[in-house]
Design a protein around this nucleic acid. Structure first.
Length: 426
RNA sequence: GGACAGGUGGCAGAGUGGUCGAAUGCAGCGGUCUUGAAAACCGCCGAGGGUGCAAGCUCUCCGUGGGUUCGAAUCCCACCCUGUCCGCCA
């Protein structure tokens, strides 16, 4: 949700920032609506002021028993009221139109975000770790997995494609990964552990910018709620409609939850294996930040996600997304891409975004600045995966595979594996 | 699912047709006092919008949306939510 005041003052900056994302100029149209809306408001409010004044006078006239004066005033108000509904409706229509356009526009990319249309224009920032050299033929996780308890057919029977059934040691390893990451983020990186709802209302989804545009990407329950596509929705909405004390910032939250995505637009993409599922687990990070510190929080959060990959000794690269590849709510996004030797490619395992005040405006999340400054300011919100559990499992399987079909357990996960040191084929 | 009670400013909590954007308390801010602090005392203190260079003027908001009325926090209707009890249930 954009600030119409900002657009009023910087229409060209606004258009050129959106142009970076491939959006056609809209400020002229918006400002015309804005002007119309304000003119209608002023006219309407003049009418309301007169009505209020007259109504008060009626009370006073009746109070002193001047029935004639009261009757005259009542007639005046009645006439006034005749034309007000029409004005009201016009004003509402224009304001609604303005709101709808503003609500559908994506966030403005920050100045240091590279231009570009899609992932080909993303910029590599840094590369960490050297891909392991294998002295045998490397396999993909979808080849290694079935002998180790990763069952796709079992799941397909009951749920269809894009679901997996994890059995025995494989289920255990996934749990270990989730537990380890949640422990790190909460105990070491300072994010408060949360267990939020998985079903949320329209407003919550609108607040983080998924609605109205991305309804088809989500699952909806029969009573109209949405299954969260990411815990970002539940965690970020924990401050909706609030005026926070400045000293409470930053608020850093984390949660390990299932995520549900319909993957409507991705038919045929990543159909093999665990990469793209309707249901997957993820450790999410969310920071509610002071606007002056969101950039440094963004770096900090990215570091928190990277620390997991480093501890697991999984090679990765950090990408700065170009304007066209970012999510609608983001102003700047880093992707972490883990090395998958089986696919011979880097694949996204985390996405960390600074949303500025975009979500805060939609959720009405503010804070009261300390000191003499009056009023309130919108907070900044950030979110990132720290990390996606399913894709981490994929990375472990592929990077730690052995020639005999077994998979070694990364040392930091050993305390979570109940004595198991490797996954062995059945 | 059934019955009842409620939803008011950062929080607590008055207010049942006009003088109510709303008593009071707490918290917060400014000041007096004090070596400093506390206490005490004095003052300020909801949010969003329109208009204006500004001071100011003005509009909207008492869960949401409708309605009654010259006038609604207050009356009516619908919906949403919260609490308590009962039923059911992991």
């Amino acid at each position: 949700m954009h600030d119409i005041k900002y657009i009023r003052e910087n229409p060209d900056d606004f258009d050129s920032a959106l142009a970076k994302r491939g959006v056609d100029p809209v400020s002229r149209n918006l400002l015309a609506l804005d002007e119309q809306s304000r003119a209608l408001k002023t006219e309407l409010q003049n009418g309301q002021a007169r009505r209020n004044e007259a109504s008060k006078a009626i009370g006073q006239a009746k109070g002193r028993g001047d029935e004639a004066a009261a009757q005259a005033l009542m007639a005046e108000v009645a006439e006034l009221k005749g034309k007000m509904p029409e004005l009201e409706e016009k004003e509402r229509a224009v304001a609604g139109q303005l709101h709808d356009i503003l609500a559908a526009l994506p966030n403005l990319p920050m100045a240091d975000v590279p231009p570009g249309a899609d992932e080909d224009d993303n910029v590599e920032v840094v590369r960490w770790g050297a891909p392991r050299v294998f002295d045998f033929t490397v396999r993909e996780h979808s080849d290694i997995g079935p002998a180790l308890g990763l069952e796709f057919e079992t799941a397909a029977e009951m749920s269809g494609t894009r679901f997996a059934f994890l059995r025995g040691q494989m289920a255990r390893l996934q749990r270990a990964i989730g537990q380890y990451m949640l422990d790190q983020q909460s105990m070491k990186n300072g994010f408060q552990e949360c267990a939020p709802p998985l079903l949320v209302r329209d407003e919550a989804v609108f607040g983080v910018g998924q609605l109205p545009k991305f309804a088809e990407d989500m699952f909806q329950t029969t009573d109209g709620r949405w299954l969260i596509p990411t815990a970002e929705v539940s965690l970020t909405n924990s401050v909706r409609d609030q005026i926070l004390e400045e000293e409470k910032l930053p608020i850093r939250l984390t949660a390990l939850t299932p995520c549900f995505r319909s993957e409507a637009g991705s038919a045929g993409k990543d159909t093999k294996g665990l990469i793209r599922q309707h249901q997957f687990e993820k450790v999410e990070l969310v920071t509610i930040a002071h606007p002056d510190h969101s950039a440094e929080e963004h770096e900090r959060m990215t570091g928190a996600a990277e620390s997991i990959l480093q501890a697991l000794e999984l090679p990765y690269r950090k990408m700065l997304l170009c304007a066209g590849d970012m999510g609608a709510a983001a102003r700047k996004t880093f992707d972490l891409e883990v090395w998958l030797p089986g696919q011979n490619a880097y694949r996204e395992i985390s996405s960390i975004s600074n949303c500025g005040d975009f979500q805060a405006r939609r959720m009405n999340s503010r804070f009261r600045p300390e000191g003499e400054e009056k009023g309130t300011r919108f907070v900044h919100t950030l979110n990132g995966s720290g990390l996606a559990v399913g894709r981490t499992l994929v990375a472990v399987l592929e990077n730690y595979q052995q020639s005999d079909g077994s998979v070694a357990i990364p040392s930091v996960l050993l305390p979570y594996m109940g004595g198991m040191e490797k996954l062995e084929p059945a």
